[in-house]
Simulated assay, not measured.
Amino acid sequence: MKIVVIGGTGLIGSKLVQKLGEHGHEAVAASPNTGVNTLTGEGLAEVLAGASVVIDVSNSPSFEEKAVLEFFETSTRNLLAAEAAAGVGHHVALSVVGTERPPGNAYFRAKIAQEQLIEKSPIPFSLVHATQFFEFVRRIADEATDGDKVRMPHVLFQPMAGDDVAQAIGRVAVGAPLNGRVEVGGPEQFRMDEFFREALASWGDPREVVTDPHAQYFGQELLERSLVPDDGAPLGQIRYRDWPGRNDK
């Protein structure tokens, strides 16, 4: 079947296109790099012609509150309208575990707005809520840095490899629409401060990880289970210690 991947040249999208192609699907990468722009609508009608499924793994270039909300609302409205015109039968979107749990941040609120637009659309849909990616753990550490210290709360943390994220989305995309969501997470749970203490040591990073219950995670304090899936969620296979990119900079 023809499956269009919005954001198909990015981290998760490129993995999806490859995996779907390996399973015999016509997987088409759609992004501004390929002449498809969901903010302006450019190229949408052409790329969606004949598509059975659309997977949206695009992301906002800015996490500033107004900009990120405008990105997800505008791009999602344009995409859903184009899908309806093209007769697409399944809309799949990648979201984040914890978006609906208080307290929220600007990015989570923007993702909730995106999901609400999808849920109100007549197009059958599936939402995949994933935990944080291994590929972003260095950025998380940098965001939490205060001088020579990295401030982290002692809450649960269950990151997963981008390859496992793509695998989970692909399985959902080729199945029947859920008209709901599924959560996916990494194969191991950690305490966030302990995970980063070990990670920085393995990187040879001299920063000290300090346990701080009021540490901010992209503008919000975390509760015990803010970032982990509910019990029984499907889990990825790749452990952080076995992940090939663990020590990449």
Rank of each mutant, 00 (worst) to 15 (best):
V96A: 15
V96N: 12
V97R: 10
G98D: 08
G98H: 11
T99H: 10
T99I: 11
E100S: 12
P103Q: 10
N105L: 06
Y107S: 13
F108A: 12
F108C: 07
A110S: 15
K111T: 09
K111E: 15
K111P: 09
K111H: 14
K111N: 12
I112K: 03
I112P: 06
A113I: 08
A113S: 07
Q114T: 02
E115D: 12
Q116D: 06
I118W: 02
I118H: 05
I118F: 07
I118E: 09
K120S: 09
S121V: 00
P122G: 13
P122F: 09
P122V: 02
I123C: 04
S126V: 01
S126Q: 06
V128L: 11
A130H: 08
A130G: 09
T131N: 08
T131C: 13
F133R: 10
F133Q: 15
F136H: 02
F136G: 03
R138M: 05
R139I: 13
R139E: 14
R139F: 08
E143N: 12
E143D: 13
A144H: 08
T145Q: 09
G147H: 14
G147T: 05
G147R: 05
K149N: 10
V150N: 11
R151P: 03
R151S: 14
R151Q: 14
P153N: 15
P153K: 15
H154V: 08
H154F: 05
V155C: 10
V155H: 06
F157R: 08
Q158G: 00
Q158I: 00
Q158L: 01
P159H: 12
P159S: 13
M160F: 04
A161K: 04
A161Y: 03
G162R: 07
D163K: 02
D163I: 03
D163H: 09
D163S: 11
D163M: 01
D164K: 02
D164E: 12
V165S: 06
Q167G: 05
A168Y: 01
I169R: 04
I169G: 04
G170F: 02
A173Q: 03
A173Y: 12
A173K: 00
V174N: 03
G175S: 12
A176T: 03
A176E: 11
P177Y: 09
P177M: 12
L178Q: 07
L178E: 09
N179S: 06
G180T: 01
R181W: 02
V182D: 11
V182W: 01
E183S: 09
E183I: 00
V184P: 03
V184E: 14
V184Q: 13
V184F: 14
G185C: 06
G185M: 06
G186V: 06
P187S: 14
P187G: 11
